[in-house]
Nucleic acid binder design. Structure first.
Lengths: 149, 149
DNA sequence: GTTATGCTTGACGTTAACGTAAAGGGAATA
DNA sequence: TATTCCCTTTACGTTAACGTCAAGCATAAC
């Protein structure tokens, strides 16, 4: 595939040594980028699209663990073929949840149902694809068997 | 989603009535397009990209059942997030299979293994996503419970 | 001090996968 | 015969999701 279908490659934790107070770990954009094997540009782009809103210290962006999690979810959504707009829609509603009005909550349930149906369709597609892979491989090996003793 | 995640909506079989010889059914581009809920443009584009090679009668494209199947597989591949280039790579090798040399066959097995790994990653992503959906829905309903008696 | 590293904000470029409009052919139907 | 469909090719337009400079700031290392 063209997409980096990895999960998250833990970078070396620069702070938070054993025996120390579990200080809130933060990340620079480059660290986060390396973690997930994306470019800083990608992360800035996601921010511009309303998917992330990191803290600032002066100019610099400071990412907390919640940002890291959100990035992870975003990338997972991408691997599943969701557009950034779709992901943002969920994210925004999710942020508005505590204290969200009833209408928003119901809208959220609607979206959840849609996504769920989507996942089911994807599962079915994957199952079918796997069967085809099995099929092709079987035939492939059969031909090879006749060519190589 | 933006994508038409449907399977195939059987169009009315214009020929092949009961009791008739199972005449090879063919399709015009418009019929095929309607079947899969895509535009003719999309189908022509796939041909241009080497994914389809329909028969011609004069100018007109005539699609046989094998073309229909190939289109179906292509669209499934798309729903799974494969690029047209990736799909074509498999399709081309698949066409070259009977009579294909050993090297090609082994290359095919390689690709199959890759795709298989990809499917596994996708399954994992879907499982994780489903859990998150469950999670969010639970919390969503909890909040609603406190708002609506 | 200066060199290097890593960050910042523009801003224009690129690719995939089509969309859309123009101009025309041919057969069937009114 | 004229109109209506459905098809054809050509060609330029569009959108999403970044890539790729360029120019500049700040801090850490030498």
């Amino acid at each position: 595939m063209s997409k980096p279908s990895q999960t998250e490659s833990q970078a070396t934790p620069a702070n938070g040594a054993a025996g120390t107070v579990k200080r809130k770990r933060t990340f620079a954009i480059g660290e986060l980028a390396e973690m997930f094997e994306v470019t800083p540009r990608t992360i800035r782009f996601y921010e511009q699209e309303g998917l992330l809103s990191p803290e600032r210290q002066g100019q610099r962006r400071i990412y907390h663990d919640k940002d890291r999690v959100r990035l992870k979810l975003t990338l997972r959504g991408k691997r599943l073929g969701f557009t950034l707009a779709e992901i943002r829609e969920v994210v925004e509603l999710y942020d508005a949840m505590p204290g969200g009005n009833t209408r928003q909550l119901h809208r959220m349930l609607e979206i959840l149902a849609e996504k769920r149906a989507d996942m089911e369709q994807r599962l079915e597609d994957i199952r079918l694809m796997q069967h085809e892979l099995d099929d092709v491989e079987t035939r492939c090996r059969a031909v090879l068997e006749r060519l190589e003793p």
